[in-house]
Amino acid sequence: MSAQHAETPNTETEHSQTQPSTQVSRTADRVFAVVVLLLAAGLGLAALTFPAATQDSDPGTAALPWLITAALAVLGVLLLLRPQPSAVLPPASVRRTAAAILILTVVYAGLLDVLGFIPSTFAFLCCASRLMGGRRWLQILLVSALTAAALHLLFAGLLDVHLPAGLLEGVIP
């Protein structure tokens, strides 16, 4: 498997040949086209509610939104008419990893304010390293704890960033 991810339509085709389980079709581009058209429609509808300009010669707050609506609509139709074959869905096992890291990151961001920076970062690093294929638990725990503490020192201590303290409120300076 190539380390390079799909960068151009060209490498994508090569990419997919080495991976028989990857689904290749023009469906993906058709889906993208529909999404672009829906975006155009949504933006156009929103722009309808924008107020008129308050100064005579000003084209107004809705002018650029209209222009972008038109551009998205034209580009969406073009994509619908000329879809390229592309590989979008990776194999099922890979999909699960992708979903797992995404959920993990979202939960991490959500817990940041509640647990505080150090505990939530420690927990995230442990889970994520495990997900990345790390085996040795002791090493993972140690590295995660040190990284979390070091980052806190760098950002809160040296860069003066206000980080949520959470559980450790009052414990750390």
Partner: peptide
Amino acid sequence: HRRVLAGT
């Protein structure tokens, strides 16, 4: 994956 998902 299942374990990580359940945990999260």
